[in-house]
Design a protein around this nucleic acid. Structure first.
Length: 595
DNA sequence: TGCGGAAGTG
DNA sequence: CACTTCCGCA
């Protein structure tokens, strides 16, 4: 079935791109620590899905400092870095719990990181060893739209660790030998062995216990065809074939639906486990055979995915993010036109496809811009954003005009990218992207809603969907950018089949905007005051964001991570790559012994 | 404790 | 870019 086709651009495979190669990023590091039992004493999953607690801040800081060769590192600094992730939407703070943060895995994130096991916490002793294979590494999608565009050349950041997994198993979290003993510990310690239990472990590692794999699977299942894929990317990139699953594991599963094959769903349709116990830690997840299977499958998928770097997707419109499985496909299309075209290809029932954008950050503001405006504070009011030099185009900045009273506007300039980004960011937006259109947007709310797990039975899901948004694919870039890809998209080369939807249009933006507005409105209503207080980022968005936060915190969790699926592109595939990749990645691993 | 601006770094 | 460093505010 499908897989074969996945091809990604070469660059996607380049080691350089991989996360590993680049400097390790804090969140990668955190994830690594979390996956190792050895470190459970210092940091561990706890609570909701992506929630983790830094039990020993100083130690974590040390480890981090060691890794980065920054002996001066301390929790204060490390925490600043973590805070920095808030804007990127990689993390957020779990209020009320000390040293507790939470990954915004909800959706996409996992694309590359399918394996992450977050949560093992509860039910299992924290230590549940991650599956050996599952490496967690991967990278988020950082790119900004612009990047994407530019990417034509290659990508820079993509990366994924993955391959390494096996190696990883061993661990190498830290490396620099700074002397801290920890390092050594890391390496060996682990091991997974612990034993425990049988199967559990296995999957445990892979996913968070609760994740809704189901959804994933479902997604996959869906469709028919897989296919979707193939749009040919316009890009020059050579596609490299995706590696076939390298993993030895369970093997691939045929089951995956073709279309989705890669695509994981972004968010789960519903909360992972139906039973969410209390939000607090308690949850237990049960492991059922089914679950196991799911995990396994997931795993498999991940395999496929794992190498991908988000960026890779960018170019490809094909990628889709699976949406909740809604049976109805329609929606998807609805959404936007297909700017990219993309995705939708899914063909699957799923309707939703989204693209996701990788960029995490919204436009948090431009740092630099401040300069200009400098009037930092003051600005506000009047500020009209003046100047941004750069791009500023201003597009519309609709809202700007209305700047609320305290808003900070920071940069709006980026316009293009920013916008999208922003939009995307907003978490809920996915929906937008997806389409959502009509119906409920609530979803969003729902999504976040605590408990609300709508347990949709099987496919249901409908509504909710989206969730997070954090990472989306690149959809259309703002300006119409959709450069090549899009266009091409449509074009699908031969593949054609798939996409029922017509690719072509632009879809996203408008929607997004819409959503935003909605959100904004809604939320604003609710919160109003607050949101504004904070800063507003650019226009309306803020509202959303904030909303999210609030809601997210608690509720979000449910959705699990998502994995995105991607459909892959074309054909070209060749597979060569996998092994190479792995190899490369393997090396990358975390180690850097030498500082 | 946690937040986030600002400046600086490679 | 992704932090790191420093710092004031809460």
């Amino acid at each position: 079935f499908k897989m074969p086709g996945f091809a990604f651009p070469e660059w996607a495979y380049k080691p350089e791109s991989s996360p590993g190669s680049r400097q390790i990023q804090l969140w990668h590091f955190i994830l690594e620590l979390l996956r190792k039992e050895e470190y459970h004493e210092v940091i561990a999953w706890q609570g909701d899905y992506g929630e983790f607690v830094i039990k020993d801040p100083d130690e974590v800081a040390r480890l981090w400092g060691a890794r980065k060769c920054k002996p001066q590192m301390n929790y204060d600094k490390l925490s600043r870095a973590l805070r920095y992730y808030y804007n990127k939407r990689i993390l957020h703070k779990t209020k009320g719990k000390r040293f507790t943060y939470k990954f915004n895995f909800n959706k996409l994130v996992l694309v590359n990181y399918p394996f992450i096991d977050m949560g093992s916490g509860r039910g299992v002793p924290q230590s549940a060893p991650p599956v050996p294979s599952g490496g967690t590494h991967f990278r988020f999608p950082p790119s900004t739209p612009s990047d994407v565009l530019s990417s034509s050349e290659e990508l820079r950041s993509p990366g994924m660790y993955s391959a390494v997994s096996r190696r990883m198993a061993r661990g190498s979290v830290s490396d620099c030998s700074d002397g801290t003993s920890t390092n050594s510990e890391l390496e060996e310690a682990g091991a997974e062995e612990r034993g425990g239990g049988g199967p559990d472990r296995a999957y445990r590692g892979l996913l968070p216990p609760r994740l809704p794999h189901d959804s994933l699977f479902r997604v996959f299942g869906g469709g028919p065809g897989g296919l979707a894929r193939p749009t040919p990317r316009v890009h020059p990139d050579p596609l490299s074939p995706f590696p076939v699953s390298p993993l030895p594991g369970p093997g691939l599963l045929p089951p995956l639906s073709p279309a989705m094959s890669m695509t994981p769903t972004p968010h789960l349709p519903f909360p992972p486990s139906p039973s969410l116990p209390s939000p607090l830690m308690g949850s237990h997840f049960s492991f059922n055979a089914e679950d196991m299977n799911h995990y396994l499958q997931a795993h498999n998928q991940s395999v496929y995915n794992y190498h991908l770097s988000p960026r890779a997707f960018l170019p490809y419109p094909n990628i889709i993010v699976p949406q909740p499985h809604r049976p109805t496909p329609d929606k998807p299309s609805l959404l936007h036109g297909p700017p990219l075209g993309l995705s939708h290809s899914l063909g699957q029932p799923i309707g939703a496809t989204d693209e996701f954008k990788f960029k995490l950050q919204p436009p948090p503001l431009g740092r630099k811009h401040r300069e200009t405006g400098s009037t930092p504070t003051a600005s506000s009011s009047s500020s009209s954003l003046s100047g941004f030099s750069g791009s500023s185009q201003n597009l519309s900045t609709p809202s700007l005009s209305a700047v609320p009273p305290k808003i900070k506007v920071e940069r709006i300039s980026d316009v293009e990218s920013d916008e999208e980004v922003e939009v995307t960011d907003i978490s809920e937006e996915d929906d937008d992207m997806n389409h959502h259109d009509d119906r409920e947007d609530d979803d969003e709310g729902d999504i976040f809603t605590p408990l609300t797990p709508p347990p949709p039975p099987a496919n249901g899901m409908a509504e909710d969907d989206d969730d997070e948004d954090v990472f989306k694919t690149p959809a259309t870039p703002p300006t119409g950018t959709m450069p090549f890809p899009l266009l091409n998209l449509k074009a699908e080369p031969g593949q054609g089949n798939s996409a029922p939807i017509s690719p072509g249009g632009t879809r996203c933006i408008p929607l997004k905007l819409r959503f935003k507005r909605r959100w904004s409105e809604d939320q604003k209503t609710e919160r109003d005051g607050e949101a504004e207080d904070k800063k507003v980022r650019a226009d309306g968005e803020e509202a959303m964001e904030e909303d999210q936060r609030g809601t997210e915190e608690e509720s979000m969790p449910a959705r699990g991570a998502v994995i995105l699926g991607l459909t892959l592109p074309p054909p070209p595939v060749q597979r060569r790559g996998s092994s190479e990749l792995q190899r490369a990645t393997a090396q990358l691993s975390l180690e850097n012994p030498t500082c």
